[in-house]
Nucleic acid binder design. Structure first.
Length: 876
RNA sequence: GGAGGCUUAGCUCAGUUGGUUAGAGCACUUGCCUUACAAGCAAGGGGUCACUGGUUCGAGUCCAGUAGUCUCCACCA
């Protein structure tokens, strides 16, 4: 900072410079210090598909607050940064970009595509890292990782092979979710259900022997082509006689059996269901039970196959229309009704997902899920807030096997090799060139890659060097806090849990701190299609990173969604400015750069008051942070800085700073600096840039604030009596201001003030600043000779007289005193009522009862003083 | 169908193991260019804490129910 400071804080002039200073000093770098307790966070790696949004800004602000707090507390802290290759999402982006060049994946081939993907990673992965830096994130950039880098890939292969050898990964033909647009399988977690308007077509399937028909209903008439049975419930009296009979499938004219299966609900529809094992998960299961044929009717991009010449090549909509027409012609259509139902869609592209029978790789989940459930039940890992454990349990308790193979090029290639001669499958960490069974060299690797979440699941340990027993892994694993949104508990948190436990024998983190989503001012999700997204970088450029961080950290509680309100960021910016100006004031009143020693014997009442207040603040903020109550911590800091320190303490110091007494002025300087710099330390995790910038210009010991020692509570500075004494002064000042405001007395009109109180010594010693703050020309700590023409102000502990003859309106004064009296009597009654309650006095904690007694005494004192005042006025 | 969140001042939200007579920011009213800050200072108005019961000496806070609202999961073809 320069001698002449700007009146307003300019974040743009500060942030990049400060961040560079931190980087140059290597302060973010974790040094594996022996003997120190570690604190580790791994970043939820942002996808390389785009740029930072508000959700990232929130997520990373919370992480940075925690890591900076722990670093200052003296932990050996590590925040591992990195990015995620996000296979399906990145592929979609690249395909889209290629489309503009008139190219398809097939045009450029696998290698050409991968080359583009790596270019993409370089460009967009890099951009995300730069954005994280703009936020002020104190990540250890020397340890930056990427889910597809060498180390993470080694971890993926290691895990795949181990699970395969344990029988927990298998390959099989199952019904999976298929995205006809992305042309790949996706997992259950990646399917989103949407309510869609559709129809219910009631169809008639005639019996082969000519005796009538069975009526059933479907939402997907086109799948009729693949029907291989019709099912009824075995207990359904209506259909008992038809089980085992043969029907003629309309249009196709194939013979299909009527089977009995518990899956059919008797009281839904007609109680008859057409069974299409190839295109419905439930039908597939029925098919297995009844040994039904699986007839696939769709191509990978969801067109009718060539098996059905009348409809071949038609998309689903077209085929559906044509088939319904044909059904009608054949007299097989009974009726059509409107129907709304849930349709599964791809979470990446929104295309309707097709259930499809296909050979894929799966992870057997049950054996992995159990220990993961137990770990949370046993409290080895805790969710904050705890209620999110329910979501976690619900997923793990109902989990099905995880389909992990993807028909995509960008990702970790499945380490499985097939012998073209004998069909042997070899799963291996290293490339296989010779079949171990038949010696053939005709071997090819599985063309598919793994679900992107397979590698993210290993992130807490793969980033630390596992499967190698690296120093980092030994030192920093398990990690401590995982910070993430509730929306990815099933995708990620759960999978990290079971992977960590299975692979390392330990839970990957002890706490999962869950935050909500950042919504727009109307409470809607921010999304591209709505165009209501807010770019954090724009906010930073307008208001500064600290203001954005402050806004995100305050005013919300863990796990709850929050709205992004520009006015709030503005308020945060104003707060930064307030701090800036406090610094400006202190600096212009300091005489040197030296750190002035605190000399207790010189402390004035107000010094003890602020030091004691600060001491308490330290304790409360630390406790809040330890309990992950970040919003509460930061609002206490806000109140302390603005209301306590600036509005009172700084104002009070002005008298001493401008006065003749050198010792008093220096004491004020020392206390101002002490309290302010230490408050900056407490605020630093939340607003790192401005606090560091100011701290650098203030007298200080040490290199940087970010590695300074976190302030600690000390009994030495717990001045309880002085705190309450000073608050008596504050009360008097407030009462005088209040009365003057009511009477519309301008500040320029000063009055000699008489204060009558049993605590006259404290008013005596504070007379200089009482003059300043209460617009007094002089303070006399006794009753005036004559009360005549005085305005009276009564507080709990003092009666104040202001000779303002011309302004005194006796009847108005009496009215005011009446109002005061009424309030005081209400207070008295309130406290008496409580204290007369035997149950309360007997059962409430002593401190609470004492509080009520004190309240009552104050009320009684006040009543007495008001009575005196009324009596005097009436005598006039 | 199951689960969960939310409902507190005009608006957006806090409210820490139940403990004085419920808070903040913005907005509003009044007065101030008081040499750190008008992105400021001082004073003020504004809330039956969704509703109904219950537990308790004491409930915004705990329990049960009701209403509204949002979300997640499941899903009957």
């Amino acid at each position: 900072m320069q001698k002449e400071l700007a009146k307003q804080y300019d974040p743009k002039a500060v942030e990049d410079r400060i961040y560079k200073m931190w980087l140059d000093g290597k302060y973010f770098h974790a040094k594996r210090e022996e003997g120190k307790e570690t604190y580790t966070i791994v970043i939820p790696p942002p996808n390389i598909t785009g740029q930072l949004h508000m959700g990232h800004a929130l997520d990373n602000t919370l992480q940075d607050i925690l890591i900076r707090f722990k670093r200052m507390q003296g932990y050996d802290t590590l925040w591992v940064p990195g990015t995620d290759h996000a296979s399906i999402a990145t592929v979609a982006k690249i395909v889209e970009a290629m489309k503009k060049e008139g190219l398809t994946k097939e045009d450029v081939g696998r290698d050409g595509f991968l080359e583009r993907a790596w270019d993409w990673k370089k460009q967009y992965g890099g951009r995300i890292i730069e954005q994280l830096k703009k936020m002020g994130s104190s990540c250890d950039w020397d340890r930056e990782r990427f889910t597809l880098d060498e180390g993470c890939s080694a971890a993926v292969n290691e895990v795949f092979v181990k699970l395969y050898e344990k029988g927990l990964i298998y390959r099989g033909e199952r019904i999976i979710n298929w995205c006809p647009h992305c042309l790949t399988s996706i997992s259950d977690a990646e399917v989103e259900y949407e309510d869609k308007q559709g129809h219910f077509w009631h169809l008639k399937y005639p019996f082969k022997d000519g005796g009538g028909y069975l009526e059933l209903a479907t939402t997907r008439p086109e799948t009729l082509l693949g029907d291989t049975a019709v099912a009824v419930n075995p207990n359904d009296e209506r259909y008992k006689s038809v089980v085992g009979k043969t029907l003629i499938l309309p249009i196709v004219h194939r013979e299909i059996p009527v089977v009995a299966d518990e899956y059919v609900e008797m009281d839904f529809g007609t109680g008859v269901v057409k069974i299409t094992p190839a295109h419905d998960p439930n039908d597939f299961e029925v098919g297995l039970r009844h040994n039904l044929e699986v007839i696939n009717v769709l191509t990978p991009d969801a067109k009718i196959t060539d098996e059905f010449p009348d409809y071949a090549g038609m998309d689903i909509e077209t085929a559906r229309r044509k088939i319904v027409e044909d059904l009608e012609k054949e007299g097989a259509l009974a009726q059509v009704e409107d129907y709304s139902h849930n349709v599964g869609t791809c979470y990446r592209c929104g295309t309707t997902v097709e259930p499809k029978v296909s050979k894929q790789w799966f992870v057997k989940m049950k054996p992995l899920a159990e220990p993961a459930i137990k770990a949370v039940k046993d409290g080895e890992t805790k969710f904050v807030p705890q209620r999110f454990e329910k979501i976690y349990f619900h997923w793990l308790e109902n989990i099905k096997d995880w389909c992990i193979s993807r028909q995509l090029w960008w990702g970790h290639r499945i380490p499985a090799y097939y012998c073209e001669d004998c069909g042997e499958i070899t799963v291996s960490k290293t490339a296989v060139t010779v079949c171990k069974k038949c010696g053939s060299k005709h071997i090819h690797q599985d063309p598919d890659t793994l679900d992107t979440w397979f590698s993210s699941a290993l992130w807490p340990f793969s980033t630390l060097g596992w499967p190698k027993e690296t120093e980092d892994f030994k030192h920093y694993y398990p990690t401590n806090t995982l910070v993430t949104g509730y929306d990815i508990i099933p995708f990620w948190v759960m999978r990290m849990m079971f992977s960590g436990i299975e692979q390392t024998g330990k839970v990957p983190f002890d706490t999962v701190l869950i935050h909500g989503l950042v919504r727009d001012p109307q409470g809607r999700k921010m999304s591209k299609s709505l165009g209501n997204g807010v770019d954090p970088l724009e906010v930073i450029s307008q208001y500064g990173a600290d203001a954005l961080r402050f806004s995100l950290a305050t005013g919300n509680s863990p796990g709850n969604d929050m709205r992004y309100i520009p006015e709030r960021v503005e308020a945060s910016r104003n707060f930064a400015n307030k701090i800036w100006n406090a610094a400006r004031f202190i600096l212009m009143n300091l005489e040197s750069d030296e750190v002035l020693p605190l000399n207790e014997s010189n402390f004035a009442l107000e010094d003890k008051w602020i030091i004691s207040k600060f001491n308490t603040l330290t304790k409360l903020v630390t406790e809040n942070l330890q309990k992950f109550e970040l919003g509460q911590a930061v609002s206490k800091l806000y109140d302390f800085i603005w209301d306590v320190f600036c509005d009172w303490y700084i104002e009070i110091c002005k008298a001493r700073l401008m006065g003749e007494d050198k010792v008093a002025a220096n004491t004020a300087r020392a206390v101002l600096t002490y309290v302010f710099t230490n408050t900056l330390a407490l605020l630093h995790p939340f607003m790192p840039f401005i606090t560091e910038e100011i701290w650098q210009s203030m007298p200080h010991n040490g290199e940087v604030l970010m590695t300074s020692k976190w302030p600690e509570y000390t009994d030495k500075y717990a001045y309880e009596k002085e705190e309450s004494d000073f608050e008596k002064v504050m009360e008097v000042i407030k009462a005088i201001r209040n009365r003057r405001a009511e009477m519309n007395v301008p500040p320029s009109k000063k009055a000699k003030v008489y204060i009558s109180s049993e605590f006259s010594d404290i008013f005596e010693s504070g007379s200089n600043y009482i003059c300043r703050l209460a617009f007094a020309s002089e303070v006399v700590t006794k009753e005036p000779e004559s009360a005549d023409g005085n305005v009276r102000v009564v507080t709990d502990c003092a009666t104040v007289y202001m000779p303002m003859k011309e302004l005194v309106d006796i009847s108005a004064e009496l009215e005011r005193l009446d109002r005061d009296m009424k309030k005081a009597l209400e207070d008295k009654e309130f406290f008496e009522k409580k204290l007369n309650n035997a149950g309360f006095v007997a059962k409430a904690p002593e401190a609470v009862v004492a509080q009520q007694r004190e309240g009552l005494l104050k009320a009684l004192d006040k009543i007495k003083m008001i009575n005196d005042s009324i009596a005097e006025l009436k005598n006039m």
